[in-house]
Write a protein that binds this DNA or RNA. Structure first.
Lengths: 237, 237
DNA sequence: ATTTCAGTTTGTGTATACAATAATGGAAAT
DNA sequence: ATTTCCATTATTGTATACACAAACTGAAAT
């Protein structure tokens, strides 16, 4: 009688052995990048095999991701990638708009000329990407632009929180697909930079808030459409 | 030759055996309540003894608290309660002001009459506490007031995040000690409620923002004074 | 055919054991 | 007396083992 070696069955890619800290990073990237789809189950043993470690560090990574709201743990029933409703996405964008708005205000107060030039450069990158219709390049340049502003706040806490929420919503920001939208984003960026360089806090804050709200609106439409369609992503297992 | 039983030495109160989820709660309360002081080291084995469990669930609790920013983990060097600088406290209050401001705006848009009455009642509690100079009662009523507003937003995400940050800063809000400050807080609350019940979003948001900023100002003074004094709390081990 | 229930199996929760790394303390050298 | 270095100790990081709860399966009963 032959006993089947379970380890062989479960083993997949089996990345090189990796520390617990990296596991958090990798899983987070997988979730935010869409490799792990909403509703998907995270099996501790499979992940342990994949990373060539025991379940212990995997468990710790899972708990940490749960604390950050990316996954949901139900006692004795495992962890699943969290599925956001359209309403939640809208709520989160509202908060993001507020945080980024505050950031813009602080930038108007504290940014150096060098930093403002840096922001302009990143927005020029946005323009180039928009002109060639390169969505990936645009999103990258867009992220870089926002990062420059967050650094310009001189508030590590605000920068960290806003960046975290921004990353969390990154998937929903991919709604920007048409060159037209990229162009108008670029224009909004320019208005924000102008206000910052003039030190007009109120204007900078308002401009940033509406900029984020515009994106939120498109994102909400997409998510609502997805929800209306048959079974959501959770059925894709 | 006598071997000393280490377990006996390490054992302290030894609370009844408690699940891993509760451990997070208890440790969080200890940190925010001041039982565990900033800079203090968290020894896994001691905590395991205290909760009558093994190190495993304690470790998971620690990782979770670290994800929430309450403690700091340095690889192979254990976990310590995080010590905030005055600058960080100010930054966090700025974000809190923004979040609560947004909450007030949403309340003006969405709150029912019943909820507004509830908020008024909680603010009346604040007034009573202020008149008798009861600081503990005031802080409690104050928390209740803010909670009502957070519920009134209809945004679970905003409510959760604002509440979390508020809890995190609770220790620094104890700067409100003089009945005079309590009275002015009460008055600010009233202005906020008035704006909400009139549906004046902008006014409500602005009023709430300045309300939080006032507290932030006092808190910053205290923290700065503490930092100026000799060695900070981290030396208290 | 459908439902119910027990046996099995899978997977999580916790405990214990072992490995690796940083803190500690004391001896030797200056 | 002070400093440097090494050995010891303590504590964290990871692996393994066991306990227990939830899910799955299939047969029996209606």
């Amino acid at each position: 009688m032959y006993r089947i070696d379970k380890a062989v069955i479960l083993r997949q890619k089996a990345e090189a052995k990796v520390s617990s800290e990296k596991i958090v990073q990798i899983l987070e990237d997988d979730i935010l990048g869409g490799t792990l789809r909403p509703g998907e189950k995270l099996d501790e043993q499979s992940l342990a095999n994949r990373f060539s470690v025991s379940r212990t560090p995997v468990r710790e990574a899972i708990r940490q991701l749960a604390a950050n709201g990316l996954i949901e743990i139900r006692r004795n029933m495992g962890a699943t990638v969290r599925q956001l409703t359209a309403g939640e996405v809208v709520d989160m964008f509202m908060v993001l708009a507020e945080l980024e708005g505050l950031a813009a205000r602080l930038c108007a107060r504290r940014m150096t000329m060098a930093e403002i030039d840096e922001a302009k450069a990143r927005n020029d990158d946005c323009l180039r990407a928009a002109e060639t219709g390169d969505q990936v390049a645009f999103l990258e340049a867009n992220n870089a632009f926002h990062d420059v502003l967050l650094r310009g706040t001189r508030s590590a806490y605000l920068a960290t929180e806003a960046a975290r929420l921004g990353r969390r919503l990154a998937a929903y920001r991919r709604v920007i697909t048409h060159p037209r939208q990229m162009m108008s984003s670029h224009a909004e960026h320019q208005r924000i930079i102008a206000a910052i360089s003039q030190g007009e806090e109120d204007v900078a804050q308002a401009a940033m808030r509406t900029h984020v709200d515009v994106i939120a609106g498109s994102a909400a439409d997409i998510v609502l459409a997805l929800e209306a369609n048959a079974a959501p992503l959770s059925a894709t297992r």
